[in-house]
Amino acid sequence: MQFQLETITIKGNYFSINLNRLVLFRIVAPQEYLKTTSDFSVLLMNDGQDFEAMNLEHSLSRAFSSKTMKPFIYVGLSCNENRIHEYGTASTPDFKGRGGQALKYSKFITEEFVPFLKQEFKTSKDFNEWVYCGMSLGGLSAFDIVYNKSSLFGKVGVFSGSFWWRKKPYIKNDLKDRSRIALEVVKNGAYADHLKFWFQCGSLDETADRNHNGIIDAIEDTLDVIKELKTKGYSNPGDITYVQVEGGKHDLSTWGKVFPQFITWAMTKTKP
């Protein structure tokens, strides 16, 4: 009987010195991975435990079979019960002390796991071919890591990012609201002319509107990060892509449905 592999899936674990724990991961690659010596672009994702719930196997299979996509592999990292402490911003925890291990998580990614992938798998040596993404707090984490370690990545995708993450409680009528940590991350970081950003929000991400301006906080926080990036020198459109899903919610179903659009942005071949 003749058969053909569509995808190759590898599940494993990596012991992180920085986190002092085993980190579970899943790698999904196209079938040609076994047949070639060529390197592959990398799509790294936080919250990899949501692979099935987001129907990513179907999305990846379609992308792998597309002639317009670069050869790439997907790498999903599972979180554990310390998610709210390991994800966040490396520079500082939020005002409730959450994200206190985000610096350790950043070091795990940049000093341990990325080098491990480069050593053990057929991954590109060109940082422009590395994309990192995440959802909600995992999206904030991916954004923070890519922005501060731009020498390792070319693109970042943030789905309903937790850009509300702040160093002090919200103060009513604080129009600038600079307590949101992501704004200071962008302001204090170095400009990298190769970086590209993809942001997604849903019109039903939440109902909260803390300043009563008719824009839900999830969308406003993301748009304010985009404004900060533009102030830094990034172009919109161009360096920045923003996708607003009408009726989209803060859930795996919404993110799974929009994920193929993200893959297209991240992995479409560039014209010579």
Rank of each mutant, 00 (worst) to 15 (best):
F3D: 06
F3R: 04
Q4D: 08
Q4W: 12
I8N: 08
N18T: 04
N18A: 13
L19D: 07
L19E: 05
N20E: 12
L22I: 04
V28N: 03
P30Q: 01
Y33I: 05
Y33W: 14
Y33S: 07
Y33D: 03
K35E: 11
S38M: 12
D39T: 15
L43Y: 15
M45F: 10
F51C: 11
F51I: 11
M54I: 08
L56F: 05
L60N: 06
S61G: 10
A63T: 08
S65R: 08
K67T: 11
P71L: 05
F72P: 02
Y74C: 10
V75G: 00
L77Q: 00
S78V: 01
I84R: 15
E86L: 04
Y87V: 15
G88C: 04
A90G: 13
D94V: 05
F95G: 06
G97T: 10
G97W: 14
G99D: 03
A102L: 04
F108Y: 04
E112S: 09
F113Q: 13
P115C: 10
Q119H: 14
E120K: 13
F121S: 05
N128K: 15
W130I: 11
L137R: 02
V146Y: 02
S151P: 07
F153A: 11
G154W: 02
G161M: 02
G161V: 06
S162V: 00
F163Q: 03
R166V: 00
P169D: 02
P169K: 10
I171E: 09
K172P: 00
D174H: 13
L175Q: 13
R178I: 09
R178E: 12
S179E: 15
R180V: 02
E184W: 01
V186R: 07
N188Q: 10
G189Y: 05
D193L: 10
L195M: 07
W198P: 00
Q200R: 06
Q200K: 01
S203P: 10
E206I: 07
R210F: 00
T222R: 00
T231L: 14
K232D: 08
P237H: 11
P237S: 13
D239S: 08
K249G: 12
K249P: 00
G256Y: 00
K257P: 05
A266N: 11
M267C: 13
T270R: 09
